[in-house]
């Protein structure tokens, strides 16, 4: 297990911004590095506790998967689903080229 870092560098924050798909400028990166470091110092408090043999709890209630019969139900009409689209083409959401040259992939 990686040991939690007490302090985040600008480079680490830049990496997290990339994972988060957030285009941030260097000033923002630097400010977030400081602020998130402060928060991480605070959350390091959790290391005071012995959590050996404690099962992680992602959900407070005893929930199980809910299934229904596989029967067709009315769905959102295409025009309603596309009504908020920033750009549509025919019955599709339109985005810049995904594959090949100039796709950024």
């Amino acid at each position: 297990m990686t040991k939690p870092d007490a302090k985040l560098t600008d480079e680490q924050v830049q990496h997290v911004a990339k994972l988060s798909r957030l285009d941030l400028d260097p000033d923002q990166i630097h400010r977030f590095a400081q602020q998130l470091s402060d928060v991480l110092v605070h959350v390091a408090k959790l290391n005071e506790l012995d959590v050996t043999n404690v099962e992680p709890m992602a959900h407070a209630m005893d929930v199980t998967n809910v299934m229904r019969d596989d029967e067709p139900q009315p769905a959102l009409p295409v025009d309603d689903a596309l009504a908020n689209a920033p750009q549509r083409f025919d019955s599709f959401f339109q985005v810049p080229k995904v594959l090949g040259e100039g796709s950024g992939a």
Binding site: R21, L22, D23, N84, A85, P86, Q87, F93, V95, P96, K97, V98, G102, S103, G104, A105
Partner: peptide
Amino acid sequence: DGVRYGRRCDDPKDLIDLYS
């Protein structure tokens, strides 16, 4: 993500740029 609803940036150069 600027694809299906909500704000989309102007002149995205590619899909990642559009998201970010």
